[in-house]
Amino acid sequence: QAKEDFKKMMEEAKFNPRATFSEFAAKHAKDSRFKAIEKMKDREALFNEF
């Protein structure tokens, strides 16, 4: 479920497709859906799949 929420957050964010993961992470670090994925490498993997 956390992965689905994370993907939904990325869809809602409508970020620049050229944005890096660190830019995305800095902007969304306080979002509970971002925090729900415990490991940063897992967050980055989901970001890269998107």
Rank of each mutant, 00 (worst) to 15 (best):
F24K: 02
F34E: 02
A45K: 14
R43L: 04
A29Q: 12
M9I: 05
E38N: 07
E23S: 05
R43W: 00
K30Y: 06
F15T: 14
K14Q: 13
M40V: 05
R43P: 04
A2D: 05
A19V: 14
L46I: 10
A29Y: 12
K27N: 15
K7Y: 12
K35G: 08
F50W: 05
L46C: 07
K39P: 08
A29H: 09
A19W: 14
F6G: 01
N16K: 08
F50M: 07
D31E: 05
D5H: 07
R43C: 02
M10L: 15
N48M: 05
E12A: 05
R18K: 12
D31Y: 00
F21I: 03
E38Y: 03
E4A: 08
F24M: 05
A29S: 13
M10G: 04
A2E: 14
D42K: 03
K3H: 09
K3T: 12
A2R: 13
F15M: 12
K30E: 14
K39A: 09
Q1R: 11
D42N: 03
F21E: 06
R18G: 15
A36F: 00
H28C: 11
A45V: 11
E11L: 13
I37R: 01
E11W: 05
A13Q: 08
F50L: 07
K8L: 12
M9C: 00
R18F: 12
M9Y: 00
K8D: 05
E23N: 05
K3L: 10
E49Q: 11
A45S: 13
D42F: 02
S22A: 14
I37E: 02
K39G: 11
P17E: 14
F6V: 00
K39W: 02
F21Q: 02
F47R: 02
L46R: 02
A26Y: 08
K8N: 07
E44K: 11
I37C: 02
K3D: 05
E11G: 09
E4Y: 03
A19Q: 15
Q1W: 05
S32D: 10
K39Y: 06
I37G: 04
A25R: 06
F24Q: 03
D42G: 01
E38P: 14
Q1G: 12
M9R: 00
K8E: 09
K30D: 15
A13W: 13
A36I: 00
F6P: 02
Q1I: 01
K3E: 12
E4N: 03
A29F: 07
M10D: 04
K7G: 04
K41R: 11
E11F: 08
F47A: 05
M40D: 15
E11P: 00
S22W: 10
A13R: 11
E23T: 05
K7E: 06
E23P: 01
Q1D: 07
A26P: 01
D31S: 00
K8T: 07
A19G: 15
D31P: 00
K27R: 11
F24G: 02
F47K: 06
F21H: 03
E38V: 09
E38H: 08
A13M: 09
H28G: 02
E44C: 03
M10C: 14
D42P: 01
D31C: 00
E4L: 07
D5S: 07
E4K: 08
A2F: 07
P17C: 09
L46M: 12
F34W: 08
T20G: 12
R18S: 15
E44H: 05
K27G: 09
F21M: 04
K30T: 15
K8Y: 04
F47H: 06
E12G: 07
A25L: 05
K3Q: 14
R43Y: 00
M10W: 03
E11Q: 10
E12P: 02
E49M: 15
K7D: 03
S22M: 11
E23W: 04
I37Y: 03
E12C: 04
A45L: 14
M40L: 07
D42E: 09
F47N: 03
K8M: 11
E11T: 11
K39E: 13
F15K: 09
K8F: 02
E49G: 06
K35E: 11
F24H: 02
E12F: 02
A2G: 07
K35P: 02
A36L: 02
N16P: 11
D31N: 00
